[in-house]
């Protein structure tokens, strides 16, 4: 019985410690982001990796999300004879909810996992120690460009996702089911408010930060993992954990942010 409580206490302390470390890590990264020197090159390279190279996946998933929204929406709305609302239904779901969340999940799968693995391998092969011994702060040198690129890329990708999604919805709604084009767009214009766009932007900014925070810090603290984080298997297990943790965190924060911003 005592063993059971000891275990719970142990777990609690372990996660508390991990959370504390990650908090300090985030603080260090944010402080360093504002400290000179500012180097553009590494940021551009990270935007290329996190942002530009995700565009294909984003366009693809965005288009199908919009299309399926129109499909489902049309089916439901015709029951009430109100297919005129199709445009606003598609646009609102994308801008407020699905755009930020799905774009973030795609970025986690593509870039978050890669970042976590990269940093984890650098930790394992003492490359991070080497940086520290050269008096180069790994927060500044490795993490800051990723953070900035994440905070820039995720909102832009979300924007692309929304636009392509609406276009996908248009193709299915107007092209396939013959919903009136004017009604589709007019409904959209009149129902989407600045507040909805604002919510989408705030969400995607925060998601961008969360993704990079979790993937970099999981990699950076690989050696504190309870399993030891050794070798190739340690990196792979850790990367899986980072992906799961980021995805869950995004969904939880999505709920929280919706509740706050609504």
């Amino acid at each position: 019985m005592l063993g059971f409580f000891e275990k719970i206490g142990d777990n609690f302390l372990y996660y508390l410690e991990q959370a504390g470390r990650m908090g300090v890590f985030l603080f260090n990264c944010l402080i360093n982001a504002f400290k000179p020197p500012y180097k553009i090159g590494p940021i551009v390279r990270q935007i290329h990796f996190i942002g530009a190279r995700s565009i294909f996946v984003i366009v693809f998933t965005g288009a199908f999300t919009g299309m399926v929204l129109a499909l489902q929406g049309y089916y439901t709305l015709t029951k009430f004879g109100s297919e005129g609302f199709l445009g606003s239904a598609v646009a609102l779901s994308l801008i407020r909810e699905l755009g930020p969340v799905l774009a973030s999940l795609m970025v986690i799968g593509r870039a978050g996992s890669a970042i976590c693995a990269e940093i984890g391998i650098m930790r394992n092969s003492e490359q991070i120690d080497a940086l520290e011994c050269m008096a180069i702060d790994p927060h500044k040198y490795l993490m800051v460009p990723k953070f900035i690129a994440g905070v820039i890329s995720v909102p832009l990708l979300t924007f692309v996702f929304d636009v392509v999604g609406i276009f996908g919805g248009y193709l299915v709604g107007v092209g396939l089911f013959g919903v009136n084009e004017g009604a589709f767009f007019n409904g959209m214009y009149s129902s989407v408010t600045w507040q909805d766009v604002h919510m989408g932007v705030v969400k995607s900014l925060i998601f961008g930060l969360l993704i990079i925070w979790i993937s970099t810090s999981k990699g950076y603290f690989l050696h504190y993992e309870r399993s030891g984080g050794f070798g190739a298997e340690g990196v792979s297990r850790n990367t899986t954990n980072a992906v799961v943790l980021s995805s869950v965190t995004i969904l939880v924060w999505d709920y929280l942010l919706t509740a706050i911003l609504l």
Partner: peptide, 20 residues
């Protein structure tokens, strides 16, 4: 600590080159 390390030159046993 960073200031102290500015005086250092280090070769690790496993070399720890930046492999990418």
């Amino acid at each position: 600590l960073k200031e102290v390390r500015q005086n250092y030159g280090v070769l690790f046993q496993n070399v720890a080159l930046f492999d990418s």
